[in-house]
């Protein structure tokens, strides 16, 4: 709560791993009781994976914010570092994005005309595309966008 550090996001990731491990062991226990792997998640597993996902997202976002915005803001305009290699990385990620998007379109066409593809593949492919887009924006913001920090008057007229 003191500053935008990476301590709580680290514990967020740690909690995510703990929740997912609990869900995994819960699944093993239920499968042992039933005598076979179950086709669906139990209510408990669903809750554990949900909290695991929430804390994972929070942890990742916390680290991203720490990397992009730092742990403390200082008023003023801070110019971006403009790195050549950051530009190369963005270009590479854009090429990967185009390739993945092409694969996504092919997947939809195959699914509509031939038959279903694995749900896991479809979900992860979409996930990779979104992750790639996030990475492009992150690098662009870090290396090519000047950081502006303002100290607004507490009694500003926004929104009234």
């Amino acid at each position: 709560m003191y500053k935008n550090d990476s301590v709580l996001p680290f514990f967020g990731l740690l909690l995510a791993v703990a929740f997912w491990m609990m869900a995994y062991y819960d699944g093993l226990h239920l499968a042992a009781l039933a005598g076979h792997p179950l086709e669906e998640l139990s209510g408990g597993q669903f809750g554990l994976i949900t909290f695991g996902a929430l804390f994972f997202i929070y942890g990742v976002m916390g680290y991203v914010s720490y990397w992009l915005e730092g742990d403390e803001l200082r008023p003023g305009r801070h110019e971006s570092p403009n790195s050549f290699w950051a530009g190369v990385t963005i270009a590479t990620l854009v090429i990967i994005l185009v390739a993945l998007s092409g694969l996504l379109v092919q997947t939809v066409i195959y699914w509509a005309n031939t038959g279903p593809v694995s749900y896991g593949f479809a979900g992860r492919l979409t996930g990779y595309i979104l992750l790639d887009m996030a990475a492009i924006l992150m690098i662009y913001k870090k290396y090519f966008v000047a950081e502006v920090v303002i100290a607004e008057d507490e009694h500003s007229e926004v929104p009234w």
Partner: peptide, 27 residues
């Protein structure tokens, strides 16, 4: 005073990045 980043462009960039990360994990 309120110390922060302006809605445009800083916060808009951050929110877009975070939303994409959220969607990636959920997918």
């Amino acid at each position: 005073r309120i110390l922060g980043v302006p809605l445009m462009p800083q916060q808009a960039y951050m929110s877009t990045i975070l939303f994409l990360l959220y969607l990636a994990v959920v997918f």
